[in-house]
Amino acid sequence: MIKMNELTKVYKDFDLNISMEIAPGSVVGLIGKNGAGKSTTIKAILGLIRPTSGKIEVLGKDPMDFSAKDREEIGACLADSGFSRMFYVKDVIAVLKKMYKDFDEEFFRARCKEQGLPLDKAIGDFSTGMKAKLRVLTAISHKAKLLILDEPTSGLDVMARNDILDMLRAYMAEDEERSMLISSHISTDLEGLCDEIYMISNGRLVLHEDTDILLGKYGIIKLSEEEYAKLDKNYIVSAKKQPYGYDCLTNEKAFYMENYPTTAIENSNIDSIIILMLGGEHTDVKEESRS
C-alpha cells in the first residue's frame, strides 16, 4: 500500500529522513513527540508536499502524480484542516456525493445521527469532538482502500476518542484488504488498534516493531548504579539515568527475568517506551557495551 525508501524532506529548520512500508490489511501507528515529523510524513504520503529526495509509492504511484480518481482510494483526515467552517453537514454531503463515486450517503447520514452531528448546524459551531468525528466520517464514507489519519483523536475526551476508535475498528473489520496509517501521541489509542508501530524522533525513524512484540517482549528494568554496571547490555535498547540508578528498555524481557531474577522488571507500554527512547538524557548503551 505504501512504500517509502529513504524519503527526505529538507526545511530550513527541520529535515525528515524516513523509510516505511505498509502492507495491505495492516494497521500501522506513527508515534513521536510534537514536531517529530509525523505530519510531514503524512503530508508526503498524501502528496501535499514534494520530497527533497528518495522514493515514495502509495497504491503503486508517486502521490505527486495522483489523479482525482487515485485519490478516491484514499480516505484522509488531517488534524488541523477540514471543510469550511461556514458549511453545514448537509453541504458536506452534497459535495462528497459529487466528489466520490462510492460515497455512501446512507452510511454517512446514519453515523451522523448516531454520533450526534446535526445536519443543519454550521461546522464552525461544532465542538472539537464533533469536528473530529466529522473528519473521520468523511474519510471512511467512500470505501477507501487506504486510510491516512493524522491525530484523529487529538484534544478529545475519552468518550469521543472511544467513539472514533470504534468507527475505525468497524471500518477496518468490513474488508481485510483495507490498510490504515494513524498518527497519534495518545499511545493507548494505538495500542488497541495497531498491528505495527513506527516511532520517529527529530525526523528519523527510531523504532519499528509489531505492537504485540512491543507490549509482550519489551520491558523496563529498574537498576541501581552497581547493578547497571554489571548488566549484560546486549538486549538493552535504551537506558535513562534516574536518581536511583537507571531505567533500561529491553527488547528481551524474558532473558533478564531468567538471568536476573531479583531485578525489578516491569511490563512496558508505548508511553514508557516513548519516554525511555525519546525523553530526557540517554546513556549510549552500545558504546558502554563496547568499552
Binding site: 503530508k43 498524501l46 502528496g47 501535499l48 495522483f66 489523479s67 482525482a68 480518481k69 485519490r71 478516491e72 484514499i74 484522509a76 488531517l78 488541523d80 484542516s81 477540514g82 471543510f83 469550511s84 467552517r85 461556514m86 466528489m99 466520490y100 473528519r135 491516512i148
Partner: peptide, 21 residues
C-alpha cells in the same frame, strides 16, 4: 480565499481533485 481560510487547502487536496483541475 475561503478555500485557504482556516488552513483548508491541505484537506481539500486530499479529496479527489487534481491541482490542475
Amino acid at each position: 480565499s475561503y478555500d485557504e481560510f482556516d488552513n483548508g487547502h491541505p484537506f481539500m487536496f486530499t479529496l479527489p481533485i487534481s491541482r490542475k483541475g
